[in-house]
């Protein structure tokens, strides 16, 4: 479902809502697109001490308005950063435990927060071969995750066709049993609401609705049965200030069209 009101696009809503989840002082490993934009937005608005890392090897990125990089591997990512490292070494910072939040987009997600960015259909005879994991698998394996993605029934499925980046695998303790003893899905931000994961089953749970959205609407656009938090919050719509800052960062609508 693509929500577009007169005030903002769905991508802008995703960027603003996920930026609000980031706290000052955190160390965030961000993917390209909305994550990069949302992390930068948080840095400019309420989290000046937010440290952004990119898999291209950038520590402490400070993205310039209007010069968003086409991936996290170009020199635009490194401008005014604190340090550049080899890409293996920056990923090893995840393994060593330096990162608070991993932040990425997603093509397909399931009820346990597993992400697929590799194959639609049978991997041996795929309907669509997708671009693959990049650092996604490493990030999702090693730290707490925020995922920002558009909410569509074909993207929110009971079981992903292929687990590219692990969420809670088959739920309960299965992630830990597979050897992934740290991290896990923290929040999924969509244009309909915000989702967490129920503590024991590790199933996806609606924790907040965006204003004007109903739980029925969310369920209709989801391919599995959603849990609903006992205390369901309603998010504040993006403010003028947030949208203005966001549009200043991405004037060409590279990532917020």
């Amino acid at each position: 479902m693509t929500t577009r009101t007169a005030d903002h696009t769905a991508s802008e809503l995703l960027a603003v809502m996920s930026a609000r989840l980031l706290r000052d002082g955190q160390v965030v490993f961000a993917g390209v697109g909305v994550p990069l934009l949302a992390a930068t937005l948080a840095q400019r608005l309420h989290a000046p001490g937010l440290t952004i890392l990119f898999e291209g090897g950038v520590v402490g990125a400070f993205i310039e308005p209007g010069k968003l990089p086409p991936s996290t591997n170009e020199q635009r990512c490194a401008r005014r950063a604190n340090m550049v490292l080899g890409s293996t070494d920056v990923l090893l910072l995840l393994q060593r435990g330096y990162i608070d939040i991993g932040f990425m987009g997603g093509a397909q997600i399931d009820q346990y927060g597993n992400l697929n960015s590799s194959f639609i259909g049978d991997p041996d005879h795929p309907v669509t071969r997708l671009p693959g994991t990049g650092g996604g698998n490493d990030i999702a394996s090693l730290t707490q995750m925020i995922v920002a993605m558009k909410h569509e029934k074909r993207r929110f499925v009971k079981r992903v066709d292929f687990v590219t980046s692990p969420g809670f695998l088959s739920g309960a303790e299965s992630r830990r049993e597979a050897g992934l003893t740290t991290g896990g899905m923290y929040r999924v931000v969509t244009d309909l609401g915000i989702f967490g994961f129920e503590e024991r089953s590790k199933r996806m749970q609606l924790v907040a609705l965006h204003s004007g959205i109903t739980t029925e609407q969310v369920q209709t656009n989801t391919g599995f049965e959603l849990l609903i938090a006992a205390e369901l919050a309603i998010t504040e719509p993006p403010s003028e200030k947030e949208l203005k800052a966001l549009r200043h960062l991405d004037p060409d609508r590279l990532y917020t069209a």
Partner: peptide, 27 residues
């Protein structure tokens, strides 16, 4: 995974046959 590609080159550079890592498990 991106880190796996990197550690495969690193193992190659170190003259060891493999390296251990904590991602790609369960996927």
């Amino acid at each position: 995974s991106h880190m796996a590609v990197g550690l495969r080159f690193r193992a190659g550079a170190m003259g060891v046959p493999f390296l251990p890592m904590r991602s790609m498990m369960g996927s």
